[in-house]
């Protein structure tokens, strides 16, 4: 087991009525599992990731991590929705950031970052600044930074949400091949059901606010996955998930925000 969420609740205090973002969310993630999370927008997926990342605290329940950590290893590294790259650092320094923060020397972290950049199509971009790159390239940098930090758990918050459809497909495949080499535990938030099916070992379906767990659907498509053999299985899983989400989305739409 990698970690367990037990009865997680999160309430944000607000002036009028408190906002209940998450309510009684419980699930267990196995070591090395690729878990996708889908749900209507505003359902607390990002909040849940932030709790796992340790950037915020749950107001109910607890998250229990099971793995004994190697010394200095990060528990969870996050790939943020809007990349979260430091605009003042070159691509090389951004990729090497996690290593440096773990106490590696500048020389070693740059060496390893350069080597890793070659594997994710960033060779030759080390001296560029993030603003000079396309969205897809920026997300490669963010993913390289997370992978190179070598955390126990990778948290990804709609990492490809801002990319165009074609780039997204390429990036999904790159992500899978990186993950297959290393087998980190991944929690991947997306609003794209098809993406969840292609990437995940299982899909956690969340309800609208307050976010609760609606279903936990295993995806038993063998790996390595080819898009062609996934496509056939997509339809029925997709229908199942969509039937669940449809009511939630409709409910969200009618709710005053």
């Amino acid at each position: 087991m990698s970690f367990e969420c037990a009865g997680i609740g999160k309430v944000f205090p607000a002036a009028q009525t408190d906002i209940v973002a998450l309510k009684d969310v419980s699930f267990v993630v196995e070591d090395g599992q690729f878990v996708c999370m889908v749900g209507p927008s505003g359902c607390g997926k990002t909040t849940l990731l932030r709790l796992i990342a340790g950037l915020d605290y749950p107001t109910a329940g607890r998250i229990a991590f099971d793995l004994p950590r190697k010394s200095g290893q990060l528990r969870a590294a996050m790939v943020f929705q809007h990349f979260g790259l430091f605009p003042w650092m070159t691509v090389l320094d951004n990729v090497a950031f996690g290593l440096k923060m773990r106490g590696e020397s500048r020389k070693v972290s740059h060496l390893r970052a350069t080597e890793f950049m070659g594997r994710v199509g960033l060779a030759g971009f080390g001296g560029s600044y993030p603003h000079q790159l396309s969205g897809g390239m920026r997300q490669r940098v963010a993913i390289a930074r997370a992978f190179l930090a070598d955390p126990e758990i990778l948290l990804m918050d709609e990492p490809f949400g801002m990319l165009d459809a074609q780039t997204r497909i390429v990036m999904q495949e790159e992500l899978l091949s990186l993950w297959q080499g290393r087998q980190h535990t991944v929690i991947y938030v997306t609003h794209d059901i098809e993406e969840a099916i292609f990437l995940g070992d299982r899909i956690l379906v969340m309800s609208g606010r307050p976010g609760t767990l609606l279903a936990d659907i295993p995806i038993d498509i063998p790996r390595p996955r080819e898009r062609s053999n996934v496509l056939g299985k997509v339809t029925d899983i997709r229908l199942r998930v969509w039937n669940m989400l449809r009511d939630e989305v409709l409910r969200e739409l009618e709710m005053p925000s």
Binding site: L55, A76, F80
Partner: peptide, 11 residues
């Protein structure tokens, strides 16, 4: 977000 990224990576 930059402070959060920093915190997340152990700065």
């Amino acid at each position: 977000i930059y402070f959060e990224v920093g915190k997340n990576y152990g700065a």
